[in-house]
Design a protein around this nucleic acid. Structure first.
Lengths: 196, 196
DNA sequence: CCTACCGATCGGTAGG
DNA sequence: CCTACCGATCGGTAGG
C-alpha cells in the first residue's frame, strides 16, 4: 500500500469505501456511518477515506446510487428479458421477494436515508422509489392492455400495493416481526396480480 | 421558573421534553434529537433536560411509548366501541388513513427508531408493530367467524397487508412521492376487506 | 495515501 | 432547575 496509488488502485479503494458504507447503512442505518468507523473498518486514516469524496454527503449519495444499482441488478435485470406485462410483473415480484430475504439486501440503506439531514440525499431516495413505482405502473398498464388483468385494475394502485408489501416485508425481516413475512409477501403479491 | 420546581411543575416539564422529542423525531428522525437541540428548543440547559431521564436512551424509550399512545388514541380509541369484526376493522382503517395525513401523525418517529443503536428501543418498536398487527389479525378472525369475510381469508395476511399499505402511505406522504397516496390507501384497504 | 491538527458538538457529571 | 466542566468523537483541512 503506497501513499500515492495508481488510478486503478484509487478507484478500487473508492469502491471499497462505498460498498462498506452501503453494508453499514443497510444493517445499522446511515447514522452509524461515520468517518472514524469507516476508517477503522477499512484500516485507513479518516483523511484517506474522505479524500475520495470531499464530504460525507457526497459519499452518502454515492452509496444510495450503489444501493439502487444493486436492487436493479437483483430484481429488474433477471426479469428484463420477459415480455412486458403480467409475466414480467410476476417475474419481478418473484425476484423481489427472494432479494428481500437475501444477504445482498440493502433496502434498509435506502429507508434509513429517508431521514438524512441532507435534502439532496432525501431527494435521491424519493426519486428512486418514485421511478421504480412508475416502472411497475407501466408494466401493470401493459398487462391491462393485454387483457392479463381485470378491467377495473388501477395500475397506479397495483404498483403502490406491490411496493407496500415489499416495504413491510423488509421491515418485518429487519425487526424479526414475522417469520412468515416472505411467504405472506409471495401470497399477497400473487393475489394482487390475480383477478379480484 | 424557579430552580427547584414543584413535583407537578417538574412533571409538566418532563412531558414537554417528551413531546418535543416525539415531534422532532417524527419530522427529522431520532438522529436529529440531541441534548443540545432539545435544550435550545425548550430554552433549558442540557443538564435540565437530561436530568429528568438520566440517559438519552431512556428519553427515547419514553418518546416511543408516547408515540404509540398517540397512535392508539387516534386510530384504535374511536373504533373501540364498534362491535368486533369487519365493522370495527373498517372503522380502524378509516381513522388510520385520516391519521396518516394529519398533523398529529408521529409514525415517522417509530420508523426512525427502527435504526436506533439501542436494542431496547428497537425491541420496543418491534413489539409495538407486532402487537398492533396481532390486534388486526384478531379482528380479522372475528370478522371471518361472523361470515363477514370470504372463507379463504388468511387473517394474518390481511393484517400484514393493512399494515403494509399504511407503512407505504406514511412513506409516500413524508417523501412527497404520490399526492394520491391517501386515496390509494383508502381504496386498497377497502379492497382488502372485501371479497376476492 | 498519511500524520497532525482544527473547532464544534456529542452525552453526561459534579456540585449547588 | 442552573453553571461549569469532562473526555470522546464528529466532519474536515493543511501539508506533505
Amino acid at each position: 500500500m503506497s501513499p500515492r496509488q495508481s488510478l486503478a488502485g484509487a478507484q478500487r479503494t473508492r469502491r471499497k469505501i462505498i460498498d462498506r458504507t452501503v453494508a453499514l447503512a443497510s444493517t445499522e442505518g446511515f447514522e452509524a456511518v461515520t468517518l472514524g468507523r469507516l476508517a477503522g473498518d477499512l484500516q485507513m486514516s479518516k483523511a484517506g477515506v474522505i479524500g475520495h469524496f470531499g464530504t460525507m454527503e457526497a459519499l452518502e449519495l454515492e452509496a444510495v446510487a450503489r444501493a439502487i444499482e444493486r436492487f436493479t441488478d437483483a430484481v429488474w435485470q433477471p426479469a428484463a428479458d420477459k415480455p412486458p406485462g403480467r409475466e414480467r410483473l410476476a417475474a419481478i415480484c418473484d425476484h423481489w421477494v427472494r432479494y428481500l430475504g437475501s444477504d445482498a439486501y440493502v433496502g434498509a440503506c435506502l429507508t434509513s436515508a429517508e431521514h438524512s439531514p441532507s435534502s439532496t440525499v432525501r431527494a435521491a431516495v424519493a426519486e428512486a422509489f418514485a421511478g421504480w413505482r412508475a416502472l411497475l405502473a407501466r408494466e401493470a398498464k401493459a398487462a391491462l392492455a393485454a387483457g392479463d388483468l381485470p378491467d377495473e385494475t388501477n395500475p397506479g394502485d397495483l404498483a403502490f400495493e406491490l411496493g407496500a408489501i415489499a416495504l413491510a416485508t423488509g421491515q418485518a425481516l429487519r425487526l424479526g416481526l414475522d417469520r412468515q413475512a416472505k411467504a405472506r409477501a409471495r401470497r399477497l403479491m400473487r393475489s394482487a396480480l390475480a383477478a379480484r
